Amino acid sequence: MTTNKPLIPAVAAGSSPSAGQGALGSAILAAALVLPGIQAAHADTAPENGIFSLKYLNYQDSQPGFDRITAHSPSIYVMTPVAGEWSIEGTLTSDDVSGASPRYHTAVSGASRMNDQRTGADFAVSRYFSRGSVTVGAAYSTEHDYESRALSVQGNVSSEDKNTTWSFGVGGARDKINPVNLIVVNEHRRTNDFLLGVTQVLTAQDIAQLTLTRSQGSGYFSDPYKDVDNRPRTRNETALLAQWNHHFSGTDGTSRLSYRYYTDTYKIRAHTFSGEYVQPLSQGWTVTPSLRFYTQSAASFYFDPVYDTQLGAPFPPGYVFGSGQFTSADQRLSGFGAVTVGIKVVKQLTRDWSVDLKLESYEQRGSWRLFHDGSPGLEPLRAQSIQIGVNKQW
């Protein structure tokens, strides 16, 4: 269930996807898909080599005087070309999550010990044409109180000179929710995702991309493990992502800059500014430092909790039991700002083998929000992650 997962907001944009660094028209950015029902886009050209990648991620977050969630997540990715015009790929991931999950809110309550195991897999088949590609994908994940299935179709169409690529996609997810406290039984959530994007080669060194995504969700969105958490049974989300990659001929490095605006029917408004710089070095080394700033407004029904000495728990002012009013003290729905600093190092061992290491540090504070009111009374949330990987081409 989502409450057992780290508090790093799902609406924050991730790192920019890789882009080609070669001549004009020969390298098109993959569409940056940010919704769960749609798979990552593919380039127009069929891959010549297969890829095997083994990754391991360790994540840990904390608040002052309080160690919270730890996650261990190994994964395997395999992609292989087929018959020159097709490719098949799949990922298998296992997340072991344990630690302390707040019973009400990280600012005012203690926590319950929890442990969860999530297994997820996705599979995609792509067909490549002279000026485009089509990818059909499926995904499945399960944990002790949550099950999700998703299907997607993704397409790309390029202009004759391949300097412009249009991307479009549609996906759907169906989730089943069975919390162990039996607050609800066999609840469901449905999400339909849509994408439209355009990628433009501007010069021999510059590629730009604009991607619009829309998600329409209905069903159970409340947190069954928190008291006084009642959310609307619909949530529609819209995001606009702009990216610009520039290659520096003098250093052979590439900068990747992006801005993402997000809004939803919870009245959350979010902005993400991110940048990274990919610098190849001698003897097969590549270093990529990154920086991301995220800020969001609070949901319209979020409240900053304060203990009620008579009721013994945080309740919003004027709360009436059984009224059915929408309310939540989930810190992820509060107004806050967050900064992520990271670095990735890759070593090419041979023509076919490489290893990589990625470190990230995240900090979230209510007082760091921009453009909107925040929740300055919240305790800061800090998180660190380490990811190591081994990759092989054939």
Rank of each mutant, 00 (worst) to 15 (best):
T91W: 00
L92T: 10
T93Q: 10
T93S: 14
S94R: 15
D95K: 07
D95P: 00
D95Q: 09
D95W: 05
D96F: 14
V97E: 03
V97N: 03
S98C: 01
G99N: 07
G99V: 04
A100K: 15
A100C: 04
R103P: 00
R103M: 12
H105Y: 07
H105Q: 08
T106R: 15
T106F: 08
T106P: 11
A107Y: 04
A107T: 11
A107R: 09
S109N: 08
G110H: 11
A111R: 01
R113C: 01
M114V: 04
M114G: 01
Q117H: 13
Q117S: 13
R118Y: 07
T119M: 12
A124G: 10
A124N: 11
S126H: 03
R127G: 05
R127V: 08
Y128G: 05
Y128Q: 04
F129T: 08
F129E: 07
S130F: 02
S130Q: 15
G132M: 12
G132Y: 09
G132T: 07
V134N: 04
T135A: 03
V136T: 10
V136E: 01
V136H: 00
G137Y: 02
G137V: 01
A138K: 02
A138Q: 05
Y140N: 11
S141D: 14
T142Y: 09
T142R: 14
H144C: 00
Y146T: 07
E147H: 11
E147C: 03
S148W: 06
R149M: 09
R149D: 13
A150D: 02
A150Y: 03
L151M: 08
S152V: 02
S152P: 06
Q154T: 13
N156C: 04
N156K: 07
N156R: 10
V157R: 11
V157E: 03
S158F: 08
S158H: 05
D161L: 09
N163K: 13
T164A: 11
T164R: 06
T165P: 01
T165E: 01
W166H: 06
S167Q: 02
F168L: 12
G169P: 05
G169S: 05
V170G: 13
V170T: 13
G171T: 09
G172P: 00
R174C: 02
D175A: 06
D175W: 01
I177Q: 01
P179I: 09
P179W: 09
P179S: 07
V180I: 13
V180R: 13
L182Y: 09
L182Q: 15
I183V: 15
V185T: 14
R189K: 15
R189P: 07
R190Q: 12
R190K: 12
R190S: 12
T191Y: 04
N192K: 10
N192F: 11
N192R: 11
L195E: 07
L196S: 07
L196T: 06
L196F: 13
G197F: 01
G197H: 00
V198Q: 07
Q200W: 11
V201H: 05
L202K: 12
L202C: 06
A204R: 09
A204W: 06
Q205C: 03
D206L: 04
I207C: 02
L210W: 08
L210R: 06
